[in-house]
């Protein structure tokens, strides 16, 4: 399923966060959003998934959601957003409980994603007992249990330490590749962007506009290979040069919020 953003603008009262953004997320691709702090990345992601009403413009989908999809546009949250009073299993189950599935089917689906994310042994643990990495695995499991058409991730790894981030990124790439998930991924981290993206959308500082769309030509599974290192380093520099001045100016702005 494609997700089409059609000339979307958004303001919070006086503050214009986004200005005339149009982009199409293609079926099966991973689109990474980068841009300086406060440029409206989270705002755009919220609008894409229908949890924030844009001031202008609209969001459209094209094509059919995958077989068995229960919640086409599904989020993974930076702060995990787990219910502390539910176990790992209960948290994942929450996404299924209001859908007409048999109890056995629910349990089967939950068991399958817990297995996929390596959480089977933690099924009856409460969130407070888990490390940050494990908590985000629960967030990912809860998102993929509904077989989303488009996965929307807002800095899902930024609350984690560097090693955990690395591990989780590898796991996510494996899952993406297997499930061919379409996803939109917001990050500050250029390395993450280059590892995960098919295309990188660079936004300017507030009000966020599209500054450039950068294709990452190297197929994702081959990006670790040494013969692509030079090309990836060049892309990294290109992204950094696009972001650098914007980030410096954004950093020096007086905050209104």
């Amino acid at each position: 399923m494609d997700l089409i953003v059609e000339s979307v603008s958004h303001s919070y009262g006086e503050v214009t966060a986004l200005s005339d953004v149009s982009v199409t997320v293609r079926d099966g691709e991973t689109l990474v959003l980068i841009g300086p702090s406060g440029c409206g990345k989270s705002t755009l992601l919220g609008i894409m998934g229908g949890v924030l009403a844009p001031s202008a413009g609209r969001i459209l989908t094209r094509g059919r959601a995958p077989e068995g999809c229960l919640n086409p546009l599904t989020y993974v949250f930076q702060d995990f957003a787990l219910l502390p009073w539910r176990t790992v299993e209960g948290n994942v189950m929450l996404a299924l409980e209001h859908h007409p599935l048999s109890a056995a089917e629910r349990r089967r689906r939950v068991a399958a994603v817990l297995d996929l994310t390596g959480l089977t042994d933690f099924a009856s643990a409460f969130p407070k007992q888990l490390s940050g990495g494990m908590r985000q695995r629960v967030g990912i499991a809860r998102a993929i249990v509904v077989r989303p058409a488009v996965l929307l991730l807002d800095e899902p790894l930024s609350a984690l330490d560097a090693q955990t981030r690395e591990l989780l990124m590898e796991e996510m790439i494996a899952i993406w590749t297997r499930e061919r998930t379409t996803s939109v991924y917001v990050t500050h981290n250029l390395v993450e962007a280059i590892r995960l993206a098919d295309r990188v959308l660079v936004l300017s500082r507030r009000p966020g506009r599209i500054k450039r769309m950068v294709e990452i030509g190297v197929p994702r599974p081959e990006r670790a290979a040494p013969e692509h290192a030079a090309e990836l380093a060049r892309l990294h520099d290109e992204l950094w040069s696009l972001i650098r001045e914007e980030a410096r100016l954004a950093d020096r702005e007086i905050q209104h919020a």
Partner: peptide, 27 residues
């Protein structure tokens, strides 16, 4: 609020949000 927004984004109906999120969260 982030828990309520999470539930809304998964399409959880209002009654279920009150029962499963607001009530235990306020407990």
């Amino acid at each position: 609020r982030n828990l309520i927004r999470m539930a809304l984004s998964f399409g959880v109906p209002t009654g279920a949000i009150v029962r499963k999120i607001v009530l235990p969260g306020a407990m």
